[in-house]
Computed example of a mutant assay.
Amino acid sequence: MKKAYRTEILLNEKQQQKVHQTIGVCRYVYNLYLTTAQKHYKDTGKHLSGYDFSKWLNHVHTKQTDFWIKDVSSKAVKKSIMNGDQAFKNFFKGIAQLPKVKKKKHQEVKTYFPKNNPTDLLVERHRIKIPTLGWVQLKEYGYIPSNAKVSSCTVSQKANRYYLSVLCEVEQKQESQIPVHDGIGVDLGITDFAICSHHQTFKNINQTQKVKKLEKNLKRQQRKMSRSYELNKNRKRGEFCAKNRQQQLIKVQKLHARLANIRKEYVRLVVNQLVKTKPAYITIEDLNVKGLMKNRHVSKAVAGQRFYYFKEWLTSKCKQYGIELRQVDRFYPSSKLCSYCEHKKVKLSLSERNFTCDTCDTELDRDFNASLNLKYAKEYTVLT
């Protein structure tokens, strides 16, 4: 069984310089492949594979210009080319959009290091040996198992911090648990993050004072960075120093990373609380997140809830503990059905927060009624 671990690493100045150099070269080669492949497709009508581009890059291009590409790991460069090739293949299949060039400020590029020698990627309690970087100190001691076989690793940078992702081969352990109750229906929303059928409600983390204060600070720092660009865009080269602007960019990146980590950890907390109740099954609904994001009034609130990450993490945990995860269709009227007599209320506006049945006069909270309907849904798809 293969399992991935991601943790922060501490690098010295020489290692940081090497990582920056490798990431910069990988970004340049990736963008070069995109432009070359698009030009080749317009001229010939055929797709330029990553293997053919790699041969041209090594035997023709680097011998004429861009000699500095050879200064970094060849496997990292080859991996960036293969990533671009896969992006084009996904575009041709209709899975993804046309790949775009990567920018330095977005910090999307990661450096790939495979295991070339038996002495590579050796893991100890507090450090790991990475090819071309040497021994690197881990910030979390003992997080990566020292007895696991590591096949490859990826180094990334975000908000002036460095992270390591390793792929290990570990023994598969099936954690089985005895169900305490029959099941749980989970209704996701914007006012509250999740309303469960067992009378447990998880509040919206974005409505807390801490997150609001960080968002207000982020808005202020973004305005400050924007003013810096506007004041200096008409000046000639050499008349101003971009060091302060780079420091301001790092401040904005740190705030973005802090907000993302808070939301991600809250989603993990909710999933862990659901799994610890030991249900026989968990039922969720297939939300049309892409359609909700088109509404400019709720798009920001929907994006901050991290619904996709919740579904991804819940699927992983249910698979680990042997819990059946059910998903109902997105057109299932969970809010309009009565959880007692199953009578469908055709007209139900969003302003009505309490559900009142026209047949049996049952009055319940709208979201709690939806969670009960999800729990007792008869038509569903089993994800795990």
Rank of each mutant, 00 (worst) to 15 (best):
N272L: 05
A76H: 05
I128G: 00
A257Q: 09
G322M: 06
C196E: 07
V25P: 01
Q248L: 02
E285P: 14
K278R: 11
K203F: 12
L374A: 00
S351P: 15
K345Y: 08
T191C: 12
E312Y: 11
C357R: 09
L32V: 12
A4Y: 14
Y321T: 09
Y51I: 00
N261H: 08
F307K: 07
K317H: 08
V267G: 05
D361S: 13
S226Q: 12
F88M: 02
Y141G: 02
L269I: 15
Q320C: 10
L348Y: 12
Y376V: 14
K78E: 10
K63S: 12
S54D: 08
F91V: 00
K216M: 09
T36L: 15
Q97H: 14
V29T: 09
K336E: 06
V271A: 07
A159R: 03
S151V: 04
Y332V: 03
T119I: 14
D120Q: 00
T154R: 09
D286Y: 08
K319Q: 06
S176P: 14
T119R: 14
K375T: 10
D85R: 00
L98E: 00
Q207M: 13
G304H: 06
R268T: 03
K100F: 05
F368S: 07
K319A: 07
V328G: 04
L274W: 07
K110P: 06
L214K: 12
Y340P: 13
L34N: 08
V136W: 03
V186Y: 04
L249M: 09
V155D: 00
Y308A: 06
S349Y: 06
Q157F: 09
V72R: 04
Y376W: 07
Y380T: 03
I195S: 01
N160R: 15
K173C: 06
K55Y: 15
H47G: 01
E239W: 09
S334T: 12
T7I: 04
N206S: 14
A257M: 13
E352D: 04
V123I: 10
Y380I: 00
K243Y: 11
Q253A: 08
V72H: 10
Q327R: 14
L57G: 11
A303I: 08
L10C: 09
K233W: 03
S74R: 14
Q157P: 09
I9N: 03
A257G: 12
Q222F: 05
T283L: 08
R6Q: 01
G134S: 05
C318V: 02
N147Q: 15
F355P: 01
K93R: 03
S334P: 06
Q21K: 15
V275G: 13
K264F: 01
V166A: 01
N217K: 14
D286H: 01
V109Y: 08
Q246K: 15
I23N: 07
V346H: 15
I95S: 05
R6G: 09
T154W: 13
I130P: 03
N116H: 13
H47D: 09
H297V: 12
N206K: 12
I250G: 13
L133N: 02
T362D: 11
K14F: 15
N373M: 10
L121I: 00
L314H: 09
L57P: 02
L188Y: 10
